[in-house]
């Protein structure tokens, strides 16, 4: 299996499938990585590992659901997509730099720092691009996504040619390596979730005002562009921290799906944030449990599937904007008219 994977790696890296390269973002992570523990025996609730994983993934889901609300309401739901792709060159560059200066390129903190730097650079450039005439926000996201990701792939192919660059253990990162999360990872995710929640709590009403009525916020003298940057910074933090847990593409799901689902349940931003964070935490935990029970099921995709399931239910049954609720309301209105 390992040998197969290596050959596969070699061919993929030179520019193959996009999604596999998304996994390859984590190539670097795979390279350094806390290798997945193979201890998938009978799982019990009291199992220490399961607890660690549960807490870690739920915290991540919580933070992503919370932050995702603001990205969604700023009409930048897919900003996480652009961002997570934009981290690739940072990870590869950090690895290369560390190797060049003789350090240990596989250190997690160092790679995450690289990811953060290139994520921030990408977001900053995206804000600049939007100012150009005729460049709409979606095009700005698309440009950042593809060019940064292209640069990332170029760097990854270079990483592959360095001595330390060859390593296996990649497949766990495509699916995310939630099942093999360590205590250290959980601590990091949990503190990130707390920090993100505190920041959102502190700036809640300003963020609400910004998302609802930017013109009014400007007129009232709020630092609109700084608040915008704050939202992007929160998304960046969640994405970078989440990368190693659920993988590149699936972190987008955690940022997009829970807020979209929560929107069906409520018409008020406060409850929406809570519901969204709750859905995120619940589905992340459910995914982790599912993969702990059935080793066949990868945790990351299971989290997303739980999210999507909740989304589907919300879409139909959500009392505020769900399809059924709206149908009933329309029939009500029609009945009153006749």
């Amino acid at each position: 299996m390992n040998g197969l994977c290596d050959t596969w790696l070699g061919s993929m890296i030179i520019g193959g499938g996009n999604w596999l390269l998304d996994g390859l973002t984590l190539l670097a992570l795979g390279v350094f990585g806390t290798a997945p523990t193979d201890s998938q025996g009978p799982v019990t609730w009291a199992d220490y590992n399961t607890q660690v994983v549960l807490i870690g993934t739920s915290c991540l889901g919580f933070a992503a659901g919370l932050v995702g609300c603001f990205a969604l309401l700023r009409r930048q739901a897919l900003v996480g997509d652009a961002l997570s792709h934009a981290t690739l060159p940072g990870i590869a560059a950090a690895f290369l730099l560390a190797e060049f200066f003789g350090g240990d390129g596989k250190r997690l903190e160092w790679l995450l720092l690289g990811a953060t730097c290139s994520g921030i650079l990408g977001m900053w450039m995206m804000m600049q691009l939007e100012r150009l005439p005729r460049i709409k926000p979606d095009a700005a996201m698309g440009i950042i996504l593809s060019v940064f990701f292209g640069a990332g792939i170029v760097l990854v192919t270079i990483v592959q040619q360095t001595e330390a660059g060859h390593a296996a253990g990649l497949e766990s990162f495509i699916y995310g390596k939630a099942a093999s999360m360590l205590r250290r990872d959980t601590m990091m995710i949990a503190s990130m979730a707390v920090a993100v929640s505190v920041v959102v709590g502190l700036f809640f009403k300003e963020l609400k005002l910004l998302c609802f009525d930017e013109g009014f916020a400007l007129a009232r003298g709020y630092p609109v562009s700084r608040l915008n940057a704050l939202i992007l910074a929160l998304v960046t933090v969640v994405t970078v921290i989440g990368l190693q847990a659920v993988g590149l593409i699936l972190i987008i799901a955690l940022l997009v799906i829970p807020p979209s689902a929560a929107r069906f349940w409520t018409n008020s931003l406060g409850p929406m944030c809570w519901i969204s964070a709750g859905i995120g935490a619940m589905s992340a935990a459910a995914g982790a449990i599912a993969s702990a029970w059935a080793p066949d099921l990868p945790s990351g995709p299971m989290m997303v599937m739980t999210c999507s399931g909740i989304f589907a239910i919300s879409l139909i049954c959500g009392p505020a904007r769900g399809v059924l609720a709206r149908l009933a309301r329309r029939r009500d209105a029609a009945g009153r008219r006749t």
Binding site: L73, K208, F212, D213, G215, T266, S268, L269, M272
Partner: peptide, 10 residues
């Protein structure tokens, strides 16, 4: 017209 009236606020 300057705002999105679908926004989740009361």
């Amino acid at each position: 017209e300057s705002v999105d009236w679908d926004f989740p606020v009361t």
